[in-house]
């Protein structure tokens, strides 16, 4: 390729190549900084003795013992089921009620639509953490939902960013489609189900992915709501092990790393499968919201 370039652009070409090398070096350094802790987590989870010295960074002494140790200490299966139930509950509520709200905001005229849209934007600016205290008093003390899935799901039930995303997507669809169906006398629910939703599959996938990582990764709220260990999702039970159960196993660091791998794996796998869906929407919602 470079042989075709006229001789005059020779120095420029060489400059472009060195810029390219610098780019790649910078990116490699970045990738190393981002990926090393993940690598270290996996290696640490597989070693018989997990220590912090330099030689411990290389794989060796492989054992699955740390996984059975953490399983014995915090019961991985039960914790995973709890995380799964909470996450699926949130996903169902967001996909059903969030899609309905997004469709109405984009395609239906009704009184107070502007107000509802204003609420949607406002809700995204108030961080939920700042409301944990009154929510705790209401959910745990007044409604008696402590140690229940409903109590863990409630604050996340309908992801507002996903509602915003659904609205944007329905808004981009050609209006003639909806008009034609309405003239044919189709009900709104039918239009939504048979026309809008099949076309909105990419938005539903992105909405699902961005909603998934919220409740799956969340620590503070389920930590407040669950005192009963058998109801704790994995993030909470692992954090509990991290702060006060480490004495119960022979290689505590290895056990913590094993738990961290299990907690991280589902989100990482989903991300690797649907990478583009994750990055695009987060950015879009970040800029617009």
């Amino acid at each position: 390729m470079s042989s075709n370039v006229p001789a005059a652009s020779g120095p420029r070409e060489r400059g472009a190549r060195s810029v390219r090398v610098i780019r790649l070096l910078v990116l490699l350094a970045g990738a190393l900084a981002f990926l090393f802790p993940f690598y270290y987590m996996v290696v640490g989870s597989l070693r018989k003795v997990t220590e912090g010295n330099l030689s411990s960074a290389a794989p060796g002494d492989v054992t699955g013992g740390n996984y059975s140790a953490i399983n014995g200490a915090i019961s991985l299966g039960r914790s995973l089921v709890n995380s799964g139930v909470v996450t699926i509950g949130v996903l169902l509520c967001t996909l059903v009620f969030g899609v309905l709200a997004g469709y109405a905001l984009a395609r239906l005229e009704f009184r107070g639509r502007g107000g509802v849209f204003g609420v949607l934007l406002l809700v995204q600016t108030i961080p939920f953490q700042l409301l944990t205290l009154p929510l705790y008093v209401l959910v745990v003390r007044d409604y008696g939902l402590g140690d229940s899935y409903a109590g863990m799901i409630l604050p996340f039930a309908i992801n507002s960013t996903a509602v915003f995303l659904f609205r944007q997507f329905f808004l981009q669809m050609p209006a003639s489609l909806f008009e034609a169906a309405r003239i044919d006398g189709a009900s709104e629910l039918r239009i939504l189900w048979q026309i809008a939703i099949p076309m909105a599959r990419p938005a539903l996938l992105t909405g699902t992915l961005l909603t998934f990582i919220g409740p799956w990764n969340e620590f503070l709220w389920p930590f407040l709501v669950t005192k009963d260990a058998s109801k704790q999702p994995l993030a909470v039970s692992l954090a509990g092990f991290l702060s006060n159960l480490q004495g119960t196993v022979s290689n505590p660091t290895g056990a913590v790393m094993a738990g961290a791998c299990v907690l991280a794996a589902p989100a990482v796998v989903l991300f690797l499968l649907f990478q583009r869906h994750f990055t695009q929407t987060h950015i879009d919602s970040g800029i617009k919201g």
Partner: peptide, 16 residues
């Protein structure tokens, strides 16, 4: 690679 920590649970990353 750059995005991976952003989607991973804080608890897992804090542990490492």
């Amino acid at each position: 690679a750059f995005y991976l920590p952003y989607i991973t649970a804080s608890v897992a990353l804090v542990a490492v």
